[in-house]
Design a protein around this nucleic acid. Structure first.
Lengths: 128, 128
DNA sequence: TTCAGTAACTTGCAAAATGCAAGTTATATT
DNA sequence: AATATAACTTGCATTTTGCAAGTTACTGAA
């Protein structure tokens, strides 16, 4: 038996606006912050809450906490303690979350081509 | 002299959150509705306000009007009258707007692969 | 010639989301 | 004992969203 990719409805988003894949994706990541958290985990090697909190864009901490909860509920990230006493957590992308890479790459490509003042994304980020 | 692609700062968004291309793109299209309008123009052949207004997702008309204004300000779409008496308008994507196609395609690909209940995007939409 | 119909919006208002600063809890270090 | 760090939470004002209804300018049918 071969393992297929898991499709799943995401809790809190079981009220899809339509069956269109684009709209369903936007139901999950359609705001100004969610994909920046994914970017930090995927390209910038961040794992801790405090690392995510000091993003370039200065994400408010209440928004960060909210997005981490939603990303976990949507199974795009996992939260795991990496030490006890005191307990500290690491956030990591799931396969589902990492699979957003091409979306991020195309967005960065478009941004670099059409928005003045953007810094060119390192080419090692732009592969695959 | 060869024509290069025009980069431009977008009015109303000249306060970029950062120079990151991803965040700058999200400054423009980072919400639940904007890319659905682009989808309708790019893949579904819609041009008129009333066509856009009866989207699958039932976009509220005040949101639609607002997004059309912002998309025009960002130079992603153009609004042109296609008849007088009474004057009626057609909205069309600029090259800048059409260039979002790969982003939409990657989003649809991800949605189809990872979200149950999404309808598979027609393969003629998924090329280039 | 009045009347329903269509296109393209705008307005009002309640509800939800966002943004900022400050507070909290549990430990570790000095 | 005092300060620091990680990971959040809370309060509150402002902004954005969503829904319904209203508006303007015509067109075509009765």
């Amino acid at each position: 038996m071969t393992m297929k990719t898991m499709k799943q409805r995401v809790p809190g988003h079981d009220c899809m606006r339509s069956a269109c894949p684009v709209s369903s994706v936007l139901d999950i990541i359609g705001d100004k912050w969610t994909l920046l958290v994914v970017r930090d985990l995927l390209f910038l090697g961040k794992r801790m809450y405090s690392e995510l909190a000091d993003s370039m864009e200065k994400i408010p901490t209440n928004i960060l906490a909210d997005r981490l909860k939603k990303l976990e509920a949507a199974n795009l990230i996992e939260k795991k303690p990496y030490q006890d006493k005191p307990v500290r957590y690491a956030y990591t992308l799931t396969a589902r979350g990492e699979a957003l890479r091409p979306v991020l790459i195309e967005m960065a490509t478009w941004g670099n081509e059409y928005i003045a003042g953007t810094v060119k994304a390192p080419k090692e980020f732009m592969e695959r």
